[in-house]
Design a protein around this nucleic acid. Structure first.
Length: 310
DNA sequence: GCGTCCAGGTCTACC
DNA sequence: GGTAGACCTGGACGC
């Protein structure tokens, strides 16, 4: 089955997928040839679907090849999920207005940049963010692959069966049901193991209502306090979780950002974080997003070669 | 194939 | 409040 969701003017699917590394992390997978993003999803308690997302004109097309139809409630659930993942309802006008004041950021609006791809749940975004800390991107991919393969619902389809492979991201309950030893030996999470288990347990037990972090009605100080209470989440991870929930007033600096900033603005000379903070302070509530757009500009230059400067 | 070194954020103990 | 050391893995490198 297939259905479409109307997109706001200027929306560019490629720019959302390109926005950071999430499209490269299981259970997401991106097909560069067809420009479609794939992902297995757990619907309700047991139903697993394999969905492909792509853009056609002013519509986002959701294709579920092995399903003839979906119940109305499931389809609504999927539609809400898609809107959240691709930030379809995010009003970009205030950001684009701010970007228009700076010539070096004129490209942002033209390429529909600024919507950061996110997971269906805050829980998944937070787990993945912990998995990016203090390790290579290769290890982050291994950790998230292991989480899906070993704790995701369903079974992995055998090659040659014609069925889609890959399992959805595990639920908090599934992640809370295993031991710290499991995280160390099967997931290879190392010292992050107790952090992941504690987070999953708090969410599964209802002690931490992590999904409300995306609610714009929740006070910023409440969200910051709750984020700070998650073991394994320091300044870098917190800054990036805040960006994914739609609050952009923290930078979330890591070693790659330091190198990239130094390369762009200081001819490769190392700089202190305070210098980076000062550089983007003029962007106020949007400084985290301008910071990220500035550092990743070359990704867009490569991807949109030929039309970037037009 | 094995051993060593390094990079990468966060936590905790200590000053 | 600031700082040093521990945590753990995969990958690069030398032998």
């Amino acid at each position: 089955m297939k259905f479409s969701i109307d997109l706001p003017p200027g929306f560019r699917f490629r720019s959302v997928v390109l926005s950071h590394g999430w499209a490269d992390l299981p259970p997401f997978s991106f097909d560069h040839r067809t420009e479609s993003l794939h992902r297995p999803l757990l619907m309700g308690r047991r139903k697993i679907i394999h969905a492909d997302f792509s853009q056609k004109g002013r519509s986002l097309v959701v294709n579920i090849p092995h399903e003839k139809s979906l119940e109305t409630a499931r389809r609504r659930e999927l539609s809400d999920l898609v809107r959240a993942v691709f930030r379809i309802d995010q009003d970009m006008r205030p950001f684009y207005t701010a970007a228009a004041r700076h010539r070096e950021f004129a490209w942002i609006r033209r390429l529909g940049a600024g919507r950061l791809l996110r997971s269906p749940s805050v829980f998944e975004d937070t787990v993945k963010m912990i998995c990016t800390t203090n390790c290579s991107w290769a290890l982050t991919k291994i950790l998230t692959r292991n989480l899906c393969d070993k704790l995701g619902a369903g079974t992995v389809a055998r090659p040659g069966t014609g069925l889609r492979t890959g399992k959805p991201f595990p639920t908090p309950a599934a992640m809370a049901s295993v031991s710290e030893k499991f995280y160390r030996t099967k997931i290879r999470a190392g010292y992050r193991s107790p952090y992941l288990l504690e987070l999953a347990t708090r969410v599964a037990d209802g002690d931490l209502d992590i999904e409300r972090w995306r609610d714009p009605g929740v006070a910023p100080e409440v969200i910051r306090e709750e984020i700070a209470s998650v073991k394994g989440v320091g300044p870098y991870a917190a800054g990036n979780i805040l960006k994914l929930i739609g609050r952009y007033d923290e930078l979330g600096i890591d070693s790659w950002c330091r190198k990239q900033f130094a390369s762009i603005h200081r001819r490769g000379r190392p700089v202190r974080d305070s210098v980076i903070e000062k550089h983007y302070a003029r962007f106020g509530e949007w400084k985290g997003l301008f910071f990220w757009m500035d550092l990743t500009k070359e990704w867009y230059e490569k991807s949109y070669a030929g039309i970037f400067e037009s």
